[in-house]
Design a protein around this nucleic acid. Structure first.
Lengths: 222, 222, 222, 222
DNA sequence: TATGAATGAGTATTCATTCAT
DNA sequence: AATGAATGAATACTCATTCAT
């Protein structure tokens, strides 16, 4: 008797709202990143999540709402991963190099994030505009970068006045494009975009970005 | 008067295969770039092209084939546009600046091209791999860039040995990302990515790219 | 009274999977036997079955799968009907006569079965080969026939060594063809193939089949 | 000049009404026999015949009319083939054997005829009823058979009064069914219906049919 | 005589979503 | 909290048939 009351909770949590929600969200993120918004299938999400379709509608609303939740989740997860990066102990130049390498590897290791960004931009950003809690979305890497740039400027190795957001966008540009467009690049240029090529690219990008940070000497005495 | 009898050919050529094919292709390019592969609707393409659906299947095969044709068409059109760019008369540094500005404006003015690339990469490049006539796809900008880099190296303003494909990818990266990801960038960073911002970005990118080309002199003797 | 509350289950079970499946199967058998495989319409099946089209796809797969299920159902139903035939109490000659008459009437009364067989053979038997549970398909009439032949041989009225399958095919041939080809026979020979004609044919066929079973005595000493 | 006028007719008869009609008819017979009425495709017929689709409509009317023409053609061709059979020189018993063997081989060698009959009967005979010139359809085998039966009766080897049409239908039944239903028979009975089996069947059928023709002696003195 | 161009009306199949329990 | 049963509205694709030359 006492067993029968317990067993509901202990053995098989067939009824666990939090667990179900999280399963759905993971499955949705996977599905939307793999097939895009229009290509995603609620059926597949339900099967992957191991729940019934009505449950999805109960918890998240319609397909659009679920997509928006998955997009937010993509940002939440990627931001969580960023916390792993430690730059404070490094000198400014090494910190930039580290940041660049990390960013490229980050995109490389989490293709679902790249896919979600592409998908959302193809849709005109209609969903991301609904996410008003910007703090969940924003990267703390920009903050870290700002500190590095300031430190570098104070030490005289970097020029002053570099906008951290703009510079972060440059970093992202150089790291994102070769990952995002890997298939067309391969087909059009025939170049083998593999781990080695990407490692070299991280190196080249670091050099380019660093050079743009060095103070202008006699050559540009403005 | 004799012309007026002929005019039935000029005005409304109701049965003109070439014209119909071209209408379909244009409409398909528009539709696929706006809605992606899964989101595109054959119905809408037919209506936009002003033809019936069966004609589309007659001329292009199924949806996938039509998509592949539209993707090829995107490249064909973008490559045709590139021919307008004249760089031969400029000194190496100006030529690079021109190329960067042109590339960014090119992406900005032809959003359908950016969309098609994103869509195709989201799909894993399965269609672009079918296009075996690579010459139709390849950009002659890489060739032009190669000449500029050689000229610059000969003149001593650029260092030698820069791989033109790699460098072109750097240019493309810096120009593509802010256009491609414009909606998420606006939402996440709150920055106003407008014409002014993009013009400044072209300028910044040019500077960064040029600095990476300058020979490493005493200034960077590491 | 207490029953009246339950009656919602009895009267209109709006959600009853078994019932829906069975409705679909009956409707499909009707449709395929009347219009053939290519001529059958899923729309019509759905309407006849009183369900929506998606339900058909949910339960049976595509049109081909549904056709295969209907073909199996045809055999299942016809075999079930065969169980009604009682031959054990009859002497061998009467048993053969009974079997022949029953077989002809069986084809006559269940034209959907003849149609399904013709349709399947026109299609090259591609579906029946998929039905691996042969026991559902096989007729127990062959078994009954085997017993009759053995009994007749023991009693000396039939010759021994007659292959029951071959003999059953002879019976089926003589009974099937006039039913199956009733329309062309009418047109070509102008003969009135009606109930009377068919009754006579059953009689003639019985005689022919029986004569072929009699032992070869002095009468045919070739 | 004289050449140019000639060349139209001599070299490539691209315009030859009779030829085109005959091509279409052959192609239609092939198509309808292989795919049935609903499964047949005008496109495929045009391609097989090597003509354009409008030509088919010009010459034969709509699909139904073409089907009817193909059905008539099936009979015309099969009747032409029957003329090859020579039975006059044989004694009655041999003639029957010959006729049976020929009939079975005939069905076996011309499966398109069997298919057309099945198809037409599945459709309820609506097309064959339109063919009013019955002489084109009727088999002269019945006439030949009548002579054989009479000859046999005169010679005392066959009993008198056998209806030739009924007897021909018996022959056809025994020969048609194993060919027509070859696929279901194989699946249901697992028996190998090959050339050897069919040869044996022709033999068995001949015996059965002959026995039914022999005069009834003491055993049935009516 | 002959055909390339074109389409209206289907036709199988899918998919987001809701109902009843 | 959860789901099996069910469907309206598409959606890609087909096919007999006609038009214009």
């Amino acid at each position: 008797m006492s067993n029968s009351t317990k067993s509901k909770k202990d053995k098989k949590p067939t009824r666990d709202a939090a667990r179900s929600k999280s399963s759905i969200l993971s499955a949705a993120l996977l599905e939307f990143s793999e097939y895009g918004h229009a290509g995603a299938r609620i059926d597949r999400i339900a099967k992957t999540a191991g729940v019934s379709k009505p449950l999805i509608y109960d918890y998240f609303g319609d397909k659009d709402d679920l997509y928006t939740a998955a997009l937010r989740e993509a940002y939440v997860q990627i931001r969580a991963n960023e916390l792993a990066l430690q730059l404070d102990d490094l000198d400014p130049e090494s910190a930039i190099k580290s940041l660049v390498t990390f960013t490229l590897n980050h995109f490389r290791s989490n293709p679902w994030f790249v896919s979600m960004l592409n998908t959302e931009n193809l849709r005109g950003g209609s969903s991301i505009r609904k996410i008003h809690d910007v703090s969940e979305i924003q990267s703390n890497l920009v903050g870290k970068l700002e500190q590095i740039l300031e430190r570098g400027a104070r030490q005289g190795v970097f020029k002053a006045g570099v906008n951290p957001v703009d510079f972060y966008i440059s970093i992202a540009s150089l790291c994102y494009f070769p990952i995002s467009n890997i298939h067309t690049l391969r087909a059009v240029f025939g170049c083998p975009i593999d781990d080695e090529w990407l490692a070299q690219r991280a190196e080249d990008a670091s050099q380019m970005l660093l050079k743009s940070l060095y103070p202008d000497k006699l050559s540009d005495p403005k």
